[in-house]
């Protein structure tokens, strides 16, 4: 459980990143953290795991104040960063040294994931490509079995088969006691995994809603619809977001939905039932 209360943050006083954000993130979900470049997605993840400290407000992660970086807290959190900064040792050495720091670390699971990703565990990390190092880091992250897993652009650098593997692994990894937050611009890589959206915009958490809740309010259609809330032209015709007045279920197009929010600041207000939006 992550409880964020009135969180504000800035790097420089005149450059606000977050202004009075509140949210509660529960276990058992894969959260998709979206936002334009520079909006503060990585900063948000860093505040949750304690790499950065709130200027005002509080963040409580699994009952801990992350900024104290207590060992009990750290041994139940793993952050897969976009840049992979693993040491240049062999994978085995990396595993031997760091694996024991995580009480729920599963060595055989780590090895299974490496096999799935087609990475040889006898390799030296420094001799691996960026994508392979990313795979090692993802394998290690999943094998730690921590209850909070933060991922910043996890599919960057992964080849196409590995992206498929990644989706399968993540789908298996989610459990009622785990919270997973994935920040990404490559939404098509993971859109089937995400069951809750967090969208950062204008210093606030503009949207904090489950895909199920959103599905009840909007639907997606291809064609020409004058009553559409948002329309985007694509090579194979217009795609639209419409108010879901008849409870129809359509596949949720996260990319279109995100574009609607980014291109039309008033889009969220247009949604009839906006009870879950930030005030």
């Amino acid at each position: 459980m992550i409880a964020i209360n009135n969180l504000s943050f800035h790097y420089k006083k005149d450059m606000t990143i977050f202004d009075n954000i509140s949210a509660t993130l529960s276990p058992g979900h894969i959260y998709g953290l979206l936002g334009l470049n520079g909006v503060g997605k990585t900063t948000f993840l860093k505040l949750i795991c304690g790499l950065l400290f709130p200027k005002t407000g509080t963040v409580k992660t699994n009952g801990f104040s992350p900024s104290t970086r207590e060992v009990t807290f750290l041994s139940d959190v793993y952050f897969v960063t976009d840049e992979v900064d693993l040491p240049p040792w062999t994978i085995s050495n990396f595993l031997d040294i760091y694996g024991s720091l995580y009480p729920k670390f599963d060595r055989s699971y780590f090895e299974d994931i490496l096999i799935a990703f087609q990475v040889n565990r006898r390799e030296k990390i420094k001799s691996l490509s960026y994508g392979q190092r990313k795979k090692v880091n993802i394998a290690f992250a999943l094998a730690t079995n921590t209850s909070l897993l933060l991922m910043d652009e996890p599919t960057n650098g992964l080849d196409i088969p590995s992206k498929t593997q990644f989706r399968k692994l993540m789908a298996r990894h989610v459990s009622p006691d785990r919270t997973i937050i994935i920040s990404t611009h490559q939404i098509r890589d993971i859109h089937q995994l995400i069951d809750h959206l967090l969208i950062l915009q204008n210093y606030t958490l503009a949207l904090d809603a489950s895909i199920d809740e959103l599905d009840k309010q909007i639907k997606f259609r291809q064609g020409t619809y004058p009553e559409a809330l948002y329309t985007e032209s694509r090579p194979n015709g217009d795609v639209n977001i419409l108010a879901n007045t008849n409870g129809e279920e359509t596949p949720f197009d996260i990319e279109l939905f995100f574009n609607a929010i980014s291109n039309h600041p008033g889009f969220l207000k247009q949604l009839s039932n906006a009870k879950y939006l930030q005030p």
Partner: peptide
């Protein structure tokens, strides 16, 4: 340098 900059090292469960 790593202690100053690395997210991984600073989140490794080893106390300061």
């Amino acid at each position: 340098e790593v202690l100053n900059k690395s997210e991984r090292i600073n989140l490794t469960p080893i106390t300061y």
